[in-house]
Design a protein around this nucleic acid. Sequence first.
DNA 1: TCAGTTAATGAATAAATATTCATAGCGAGG
DNA 2: CCTCGCTATGAATATTTATTCATTAACTGA
Lengths: 320, 320
Amino acid sequence: MKPEYELRLVTKAAHLYWVEQVRQVDIAARLSLSQAGVSRLLRRAQKEGIVSISIKPPEGTYHLLEEELASKLGLDEVVVTSCPDNSDNAIVSSIGEAAAQYLASTLRESDRVGISSWSSALVALSEHLPAKGQIKAERVVQLMGGMSHDRAEHLAENLTLQLANRLAARPAFMHVAGIASTSDARKVFCEEPYVRETMALFDDLTVALVGIGTLAPSQFLARSGNAFSDEELAELAGCGAVGDVCLRFFDANGQAVSHALDERVVAISAPSLKKVPRVVGVAGGHQKVASIRAAALGGWIQVLITDCFTAEALAEKASL
Amino acid sequence: MKPEYELRLVTKAAHLYWVEQVRQVDIAARLSLSQAGVSRLLRRAQKEGIVSISIKPPEGTYHLLEEELASKLGLDEVVVTSCPDNSDNAIVSSIGEAAAQYLASTLRESDRVGISSWSSALVALSEHLPAKGQIKAERVVQLMGGMSHDRAEHLAENLTLQLANRLAARPAFMHVAGIASTSDARKVFCEEPYVRETMALFDDLTVALVGIGTLAPSQFLARSGNAFSDEELAELAGCGAVGDVCLRFFDANGQAVSHALDERVVAISAPSLKKVPRVVGVAGGHQKVASIRAAALGGWIQVLITDCFTAEALAEKASL
DNA sequence: TCAGTTAATGAATAAATATTCATAGCGAGG
DNA sequence: CCTCGCTATGAATATTTATTCATTAACTGA
């Protein structure tokens, strides 16, 4: 058959199928060939680029950026939220809400959820979950100690509790400070029955919700009074550390930085954290770009929820 | 659920499905919903115009023009061929070839094919059919008399014979002139056994291949010596006739023009012609635009095969 | 608060599409 | 002229997608 007429058939079939929405059997009848033949014509039309299918993302969605980040950072999924401006307030609120949506649509009743604390984004997440519990989980497990020693904020416990309530899940608390004064003190903490019980759940989690920290303690964290000192931070920086997840620090490529301070942290261990099937990092802000990138590259998180400004910066940085 | 996140899901599903070619079940798994849900998201994506599918016709194909003509002229199918220039030679050759392709891909072995003659495009059609007969028909039936009275060309018979040979079909000839000198003479012709036999087949055709004539006899037709005189043509024109199929004349809207000359034509009758399920008109050239349009509007043909220049002119005319 | 209505959901099923397989035509090389 | 391998084809089948249906959740107006 003349190639020109063949092309005409391909084009016609493509038009009928994709534009006029005609079924393949009907096209087959009209073109006097079998349905299998039409299927083949259509495959050819795709291969030869006669049809082009394009997705135009609605305002406020960023699927290309998400794809790009997921592939460049080796993540399973990236959610990029639109955000009115790049202030920390706006970012925290928008990614918190998105994270809530993400949880709402992916959480199963059988999930055992770990939660790191000291993150305003995670607080926002919890607050955006519907209070009426149609979204459920089995357990909500606090991943790091968080009790403030000089204020009665009990922030980490509060967050864990609130999340557990909203998810109609049984909570597991740490009830101790996240940073012990010495490694021996940490050992003592870990011997506490509460803590042992909770830590026993770490290897059985299905999801973890974590913030991603930078070396400079966030205002939030500083206010809690529960952070490393400037000297300690400087020492970590000297070892190449750029950020942390649950106070487990890593360098710019995500490689774990081992350091004596590690021994004072009362939290899920790096190996246990890496064994959690789905770690969801919720973070945004220009000061966090480097640590987010590192957390992703190092495999500390599988899912990233961030805002469009941070996402842009990450994409730019990743493409260098 | 927040409409923004919902949109994100729709977009994501659309991207995965149409760009990444992921199966709905796999998308469902990734998005944590059922396959039915994905199907619904995708439907929404189409409805809301998030996906746009466009067909870009390869060089030399004219599917939009074909669609337009088919709908405006009320035809089942239109084939528009590309054509190097708008000379009659180029047109006849290209539409002849296209018509051959069309026949090749739509003719069944059980088809009974009528053929009008006196048309250079039909000659080209026949010549472009592969001589080795993989395309077959049951019968090839001459629809009009065509024997020249002063030259031994036997053109119509030749065409019928050639077509029958190429289609491995049994031919049925008229063996008389297409225009009798008087209506009585026509009656005598029609009593001829040959003619009666052939005409008996007219009501049982499945396809007819016809040229479309203008009032000014074509050079081809004039040379055959078998045409109406200038006075007769003027008379027809006076009745509003603009063209003919098988010497059955019609006006600009395709309404049959009845006239005494009708009684002298030895050919398939207008009613019989209109009963043929699929009449394929093969014609092109700027002088034929009006008669092609009329033939289509009057329901004389169901399929039109023409060139891109004529098609453009038809589309322009039809949109007025 | 509660019945009545509407909308959303996924399992089951129906419909549509892709693939497999057996067959037939065609060209190249004996 | 024949045989081999290649391609093209449609019937049968497997896979994938759309729809139906029953259930549940959410919303509305007493």
